[in-house]
């Protein structure tokens, strides 16, 4: 008699290899299900339990999750693009054209990267509007709102630095205009522009600086802020459900968590 898929899965979970990898063990009890979240490096940032009401689509429209998904798509498409891209003048433009016309699946990766970038900016804004109009920024979630504003800035800077990398006319003049806007900052403006561009004009130094910012510094900063952002959701009492009586108290030091 054929055994069901569930039986095989059950056997797998009982196996010594599985239990050596997943420390929580397995079982249908709430304790086991909680431990599956709590004892996993990636999932332990999240609340062990969530209110069913807060997971309904209408509550958050999943905008935060969708922003995170676009970020993951951008990392997953950006790293392969780096393998064919030299951040040098004028090679960068030729590499961008090669990615479009000569590299297998290059056009797909580049377009996916570009469209996801647009989508991420849109989704981050939408997420912030949703949080704002539902009042989900109020105590104890004030600091997570601040982290969210930082993440918005990281998103915009990622967008801006990525804009220069194709090294075409649009890129060059957009960064020329943008960096001249920077120099409107009182007193420090021209200095900020000089340090950002690594010179007086948008040139090889600027391309390299924007490349390093775009591929290393800003993604790392964004990743760390996202970590704090998710962790604070748990600490501030889970997703805001918006119901009266949900004055979700922050969870104060739970020794076994």
């Amino acid at each position: 008699m054929a055994r069901s898929f569930q039986n095989y899965l059950g056997d797998l979970r009982e196996s010594r290899v599985w239990q050596s990898i997943f420390r929580s063990g397995s079982g249908p009890s709430n304790l086991h299900r909680s431990q599956a979240i709590q004892q996993n490096l990636y999932l332990h940032l999240f609340s062990v339990k969530s209110r069913r009401s807060s997971l309904a689509i209408g509550v958050t429209w999943y905008l935060g999750t969708l922003s995170m998904v676009t970020f993951l798509i951008l990392v997953a498409t950006g790293i392969p693009l780096m393998l064919y891209y030299h951040p040098s003048v004028p090679q960068a433009y030729a590499d961008m054209k090669d990615l479009q016309f000569a590299v297998s699946a290059g056009l797909f990766l580049r377009n996916l990267h570009r469209w996801s970038a647009h989508a991420m900016v849109l989704l981050v804004f939408a997420h912030m509007f949703r949080v704002f109009y539902r009042g989900a920024y109020r105590p104890p979630r004030e600091f997570n709102w601040v982290i969210g504003v930082m993440l918005l800035l990281v998103t915009l800077f990622l967008s801006y630095t990525g804009y220069l990398l194709p090294w075409d006319q649009l890129a060059f003049w957009a960064i020329t205009v943008g960096s001249n806007i920077m120099s409107a900052v009182p007193l420090l403006g021209p200095k900020i522009r000089f340090l950002t561009l690594g010179g007086n004009t948008v040139n090889a130094n600027a391309l390299l600086r924007f490349y390093v910012l775009h591929c290393v510094i800003l993604p790392l900063a964004g990743g760390m802020l996202v970590g704090i952002h998710f962790w604070r959701i748990r600490k501030d009492g889970g997703l805001y459900s918006g119901k009266s009586g949900d004055e979700s108290q922050p969870q104060v030091s739970q020794p076994h968590e």
């Binding site: 000089f194 340090l195 007086n200």
Partner: peptide
């Protein structure tokens, strides 16, 4: 950091 980020020689 400030000194490092300010190029001393520019090939402009």
């Amino acid at each position: 950091g400030y000194e490092f980020l300010s190029p001393n020689v520019l090939y402009e």
